[in-house]
């Protein structure tokens, strides 16, 4: 069973208490053992693979040498026949039979090597997959554990401090209060700024400064007349 499924089952089955081991130590040991086994078999499979591949190449070379010899002897045989040396031709033909027998037995060996290589490659793939999968599952278990531990230490300290942090309602009220204070402050400072601005404008007007600085139709006419 996959670890995620185990965790699901454990949670559904009521292992909800924080701190209760959701995945037992045995399952973790099994996972770790599987990883070690897969690593070992991976190492062996790789070693075997290189060995078998070397043998395969060697056998291929031997087969091509035999093929060459067979062609050579076929040539000799036809030359002997041309010369009318029937006895020699038969002797050569016998050699060819012998060579062909050797070749077909080598070909059978080659076939078994090729199959062995395919099997080994599949084994390597599988071992690599198992290692990756188990590593991932192990991580999931370890994360689940550390989250549990963390939660336990947090909830422990919450209850021992009898802190108000543990009550969402109260936290919420305080957050809202803080936000209200912030927006009140902003509003108050806006009002203050507006007041300060108005105040200054009023003083300027009272001092008769604002009129002289503003340009009215009359002041324009005044300027024209003055020219």
């Amino acid at each position: 069973m996959s670890i995620l499924k185990k965790i699901f089952t454990a949670v559904r089955g009521g292992a909800r208490e924080v701190g209760e081991a959701i995945v037992d130590a045995n399952a973790i040991r099994i996972l770790e053992q599987e990883i070690t086994d897969a690593r070992n078999s991976l190492g062996k499979a790789r070693e075997n693979l290189t060995e078998v591949m070397a043998k395969e190449m060697q056998t291929k070379r031997e087969i091509s040498t035999l093929s060459q010899k067979i062609t050579e002897h076929e040539d000799y045989a036809s030359q002997a026949m041309e010369k009318g040396d029937e006895a020699l031709a038969i002797e050569i033909a016998q050699k060819i039979v012998e060579l062909e027998g050797e070749k077909s037995s080598k070909e059978a060996i080659l076939e078994s090597f090729t199959q062995h290589i395919t099997t080994l490659k599949a084994q390597i793939n599988q071992a690599e997959g198992t290692i990756a999968e188990n590593d991932r599952q192990l991580l999931m278990v370890k994360t689940t554990e550390s989250v549990q531990k963390a939660t336990m230490s947090v909830t422990d300290s919450m209850s021992s401090n009898n802190s108000s942090m543990s009550n969402a309602r109260e936290s919420l009220e305080r957050i809202k209060k803080r936000q209200q204070e912030r927006s009140d402050k902003a509003a108050a400072s806006a009002v203050l700024q507006a007041e300060a601005g108005n105040d200054l404008a009023a003083k300027i007007k009272a001092a008769g400064l604002s009129d002289s600085s503003s340009s009215s139709a009359e002041s324009v006419l005044e300027r024209i007349r003055a020219k």
Binding site: L139, K142, T143, K149, A150, T151, T155, M158, S166, A168
Partner: peptide
């Protein structure tokens, strides 16, 4: 009001805030 709790595991840094039960 809402502290953040940080834990390091083998692969990640987990940041958690506890909202309510």
């Amino acid at each position: 009001e809402i502290p953040i709790y940080i834990t390091a595991t083998d692969t990640q840094l987990l940041c958690i805030s506890y909202l309510f039960r």
